[in-house]
Amino acid sequence: FMLAFVAAIARGRYGIATFLSAIVPMILVLETEWLWSPVSGLLPLEEDNIVGVFPGHVQGPTLVLCAHYDTATQFGDHITWARWMPIVGLAVALALALSLSGLWQRRWGRELPRMLRLSVAGFVLVPFGAMAVFFSAGPLVRTPSPGALDNGGSVAVLLRLAERLTLRPADAPTTVKLVFLAAEEERALGSWHYANMLREKQSVGVINLEIVGASDQLAYVLEEGFALRRYHPSDSLVDLVRKTAQKMWGQPLAARRLPGAMYTDGRSFLAQGIAAVTLMSVYEGGPRGLHSARDSRDRLLVPQLERTVELLAAIVASMDRDPLILRTR
């Protein structure tokens, strides 16, 4: 679209340029804010969520413990992207202003100087080209990311927890679902699809794991969401997690904001009205080097993974003792 915009500006086709510069932000909002796929859906790729169920009473609560199992190989990371995103917004605004200025000048029988048109159009193209390199060129030329922090450690926690859950009594009241989510790296589409399936169910809570094992301290995410929509975690789940941590470790979990342009699968559940909270390792500024060969197993702190398993097992036990502890509606 932006290459077509530059070509239209170079030829003085301001009407076409205006249309293109207006439709690009609309597509970006549809794709990233509302998770529709008018462009990316033209090349569909199917991935699967994997769900393991430890059934409880039919009328009992359901606790979903989830982590995404996919990773990506790209140039840059969430800190790099956060620096470029405002420039993308500025570029879109300049593209629209240039197109409308050209139409206005032509109405009065004048033309914008060609050098001005090409200079502004070139600037507009730069951030879109940079983002294309960040997201698309990595898999072609870089060593694949092992995905240890993002998000192998969290997946390992759920697999270890599965061993614990097999020891629960057969009449345990809480249904526990271990969900390994696909497509988190593609706008969190896997969790969005799964959350849509949960939306009508009652007494459901979701604990999402992200970058667990990156440090020796665990926290819950204070706020997450989209560019135009922000959500806070469920009060009842935050209370349950904090009290369980207080009982086990002598102090409650701290609250932390997501660094940079990072998002998690937690936003999919919160946006659809499902009680949820995301747990992640505390790391000032966020761990760097994700989506690259630097995201290797030696960066994982295994004791922290085991501590997280213990915490989740204790949360399940608390819900089994008091099924009404999860107030989600």
Rank of each mutant, 00 (worst) to 15 (best):
E47C: 14
E47K: 15
E47Y: 09
E47W: 01
E47D: 15
D48C: 07
D48V: 10
D48M: 11
D48S: 14
N49D: 12
I50F: 10
I50R: 13
I50E: 05
I50Q: 09
I50L: 14
I50M: 10
I50P: 02
V51S: 00
V51C: 00
V51E: 03
G52T: 11
G52Q: 10
G52Y: 12
V53H: 04
V53S: 05
P55W: 04
P55R: 02
P55M: 01
P55V: 00
P55E: 01
G56V: 07
G56Y: 07
G56M: 14
G56N: 12
H57E: 07
H57K: 06
V58C: 00
V58H: 02
V58W: 02
Q59M: 13
Q59K: 14
Q59L: 15
Q59Y: 06
G60N: 07
P61L: 12
P61Q: 08
P61Y: 01
T62C: 11
T62R: 13
L63H: 01
L63E: 00
L63C: 05
V64F: 11
V64L: 08
V64Y: 11
V64S: 08
L65V: 11
C66G: 15
C66N: 15
C66S: 14
C66M: 14
C66H: 04
A67K: 01
A67V: 03
H68F: 09
H68G: 02
H68P: 03
H68M: 05
Y69V: 04
Y69I: 04
Y69H: 03
Y69W: 12
D70A: 10
D70T: 08
T71N: 13
T71F: 12
T71M: 06
T71V: 05
T71K: 03
A72P: 00
A72W: 15
A72K: 15
A72D: 13
A72C: 11
T73G: 14
T73H: 15
T73C: 14
T73D: 15
T73F: 15
T73L: 15
Q74F: 10
Q74W: 09
F75V: 02
F75I: 02
F75R: 05
G76A: 11
G76E: 04
G76T: 10
G76H: 10
G76Q: 04
D77L: 11
D77E: 13
D77H: 14
H78V: 05
H78M: 04
H78W: 10
H78A: 09
H78L: 08
H78S: 10
I79G: 03
I79V: 11
I79E: 07
I79P: 00
I79L: 07
T80I: 01
T80V: 07
T80W: 13
T80Y: 08
W81A: 12
W81G: 04
A82W: 13
A82S: 14
R83T: 08
R83V: 09
W84T: 09
W84V: 08
W84M: 04
W84S: 03
W84I: 08
M85S: 02
M85L: 07
P86T: 02
P86S: 06
P86V: 01
P86A: 07
P86H: 07
I87W: 03
I87E: 03
V88F: 10
V88I: 15
V88W: 10
